[in-house]
């Protein structure tokens, strides 16, 4: 499982209700059900992901987050998770608000556009970064709202969103993870935030 997802598990209270926004093939939700006995619901728009999730025995609703989440009542979940999806939304700030209306807590992970490789790529080539991690060309990418660690924290501050925990993933090695924790905006590839009101 991806490093960001492994780390999230410890923040999930056993037996709680979890809404996973953009649950892909449901593997994370499945592991939460198995290891944390959560009552989970996933949202997804990809047909393959939906079928895979249903086959895994999960509850999955086909719904486009860009159409809003108004159909979810206030406080209907304990935790709302959104992994690596923030940057693909039309209105990320509104969805963050919605997450904390629907859930007591939110967990968000996103790729940090402030990572030194992105800056290096843009600085030296003067072109939008394309990497193994972010493989899309600028004109044909689902990622329309990239942000940096600092951008995200500024948004939380502005919107009175409380950051309970944060965790930074620098890469595969211990050294890069240490660097990511010390200088997140420069060395974190993936940022993980545990938020609440």
């Amino acid at each position: 499982m991806r490093q960001d997802l492994t780390h999230i598990q410890q923040w999930i209270v056993p037996g709680s209700r979890v809404l996973d926004l953009g649950c892909a093939d449901g593997q994370f939700l499945l592991s939460l059900q198995q290891k944390r006995q959560v009552r989970g619901l996933g949202l997804e728009i990809d047909p393959q992901g939906i079928t895979a999730s249903i086959a895994a025995g999960l509850n999955i609703v086909e719904q486009d987050m860009d159409d809003g989440l108004a159909n979810f009542p206030d406080n209907s979940f304990d935790t709302v998770v959104m992994a690596q999806t923030l940057q693909a939304l039309h209105h990320p700030h509104l969805i963050l608000e919605e997450m904390l209306r629907i859930g007591q807590q939110g967990i968000v992970t996103f790729p940090n556009f402030g990572h030194w490789r992105c800056r290096w790529y843009l600085g030296t080539r003067g072109r939008m970064p394309v990497s193994e991690f972010m493989p899309y060309a600028w004109f044909d990418t689902p990622n329309i709202h990239f942000c940096t660690v600092r951008d995200f924290e500024a948004l939380c501050h502005e919107r009175n969103i409380c950051i309970l925990h944060r965790h930074m993933v620098g890469g595969s090695g211990a050294l890069s993870n240490q660097a990511a924790r010390m200088w997140p905006n420069l060395f974190a590839m993936t940022a993980i935030y545990h938020i609440s009101r």
């Binding site: 619901l41 047909p47 939906i50 079928t51 999730s53 249903i54 999960l58 509850n59 999955i60 609703v61 086909e62 719904q63 159909n71 979810f72 009542p73 209907s76």
Partner: peptide, 10 residues
Amino acid sequence: IAAGREVSYA
């Protein structure tokens, strides 16, 4: 969903 029932939708 609002009734807290288990549901999938495609």
